[in-house]
Write a protein that binds this DNA or RNA. Structure first.
Lengths: 206, 206
DNA sequence: AGAAAAAGCGAGTTATCGCTCGCATTATAT
DNA sequence: ATATAATGCGAGCGATAACTCGCTTTTTCT
């Protein structure tokens, strides 16, 4: 008897239907954030929408913040999936088409879940925002290493600085395009915008 | 007798020491945001730090949000003061030095109260963020009208689009420079960054 | 000086919300 | 079958925070 000490510190991994519970909780949180806003996302409400009890919620998430962080993480990973794929695609391309592709992907990736993206951007008090910062660093590193591989095509410039400028620029334009300009963007406008952004960045690098 | 109906709807203008009270409240809010963070900025605490009572607070501000909005407004107006000045300076300059000046001002303006700027950016759930949006529109209009006045120097390009790209780019680089890269920036690095950003934007426009 | 209005006060009300805890149900192991 | 662990439940506790209200103090006006 007494195989093991019951080990119940809090927030354990899962191995069956508990997975479903965790998923339901994260999904419910995302839905509430989108449909009712951050303020309405109380733990009781989240549990209710997820169809589980508050008690269950606290078995898997030590705090409300952890839950929101999980939503952010999930969304972030979706986007990073796209982005990493783009860098693989682009690895052997010359600068101009590569930049064009990356700009396009930056804009597309903001379309994954724009309503959630907006809420996360505008309403969530990201204290440490460790995840986002990690993604930023990763993107920076990816850009930098691509630029290194194409150094021959580029003018003399510090690659760290170049990567910083490229990432900031492309991200900002993609972000503002999708979130600020509402969704009233014609296909053609977007095409023009991609052309112009590409032109600017390529002109800067060469 | 009965000169006027007592008119006490809430949140009236002021005409004496009440100005001081209002100022103290806004200032206290800003200080708490910077020193203790958004979560600690309760109305009771704000009143305490301002040296007034909660009751007085609610005579001038109908809600906590109104107070935070006032802080945002004040900070925004400080920055917009700089920015408007820059556009006056720049009005008769050719594109290259004008862009250089605007990039410099964008970076400088993030140095006005960086700690507050960071808190407002990271911790404040800006619901409508009407003020910020208004500032954005104003900056966009200023850039656009400058570009119009220099149309002869520019390549053929839609000026609205050009303004959008310029504003997004310069703002993002300034923002990331001051807030993300910590404050570990040498004078020389900043100079290089201004050079490179100017080069990119000017190259894009011409 | 005296009255009325403006400004200020702060204990208390009300409500919400994060989170716990003891117990019930379901799955796994022997 | 029965013990043991895993999962789930939800009423309720404790804390906190936004905001009110009746009252006092200060200023303004005549």
């Amino acid at each position: 008897m007494a195989r093991k000490p019951p080990t119940k510190p809090r927030k354990n991994a899962s191995q069956a239907r508990s997975r479903a519970t965790v998923d339901a909780l994260v999904e419910a949180t995302a839905r509430i954030l989108v449909r009712e806003g951050f303020e309405k996302a109380s733990t009781n409400r989240i549990a209710e929408v997820a169809g589980v009890s508050v008690g269950s919620l606290y078995q898997y998430f030590p705090s409300k913040e952890a839950l929101v962080a999980a939503v952010i993480d999930r969304h972030n990973e979706e986007i990073m999936g796209f982005v990493r794929g783009a860098f693989v695609e682009v690895a052997d391309m010359p600068v101009e088409p590569a930049v064009r592709r990356l700009v396009t992907v930056a804009i597309e990736s903001h379309h994954i879940n724009p309503r959630l993206h907006r809420v996360l951007d505008e309403q969530i008090p990201r204290a440490g925002k460790l995840d986002v910062e990690a993604s930023n660093r990763e993107v920076h590193a990816l850009v930098r290493s691509y630029l290194e591989s194409r150094r021959a095509e580029l003018r003399k410039i510090d690659l760290g600085l170049a990567a910083f400028v490229c990432v900031s620029t492309i991200e900002a334009i993609a972000h503002n395009t999708v979130l600020n300009q509402a969704e009233m963007l014609s296909e053609k406008m977007v095409k023009t915008l991609i052309d112009e952004t590409t032109r600017m960045v390529v002109g800067f690098l060469k």
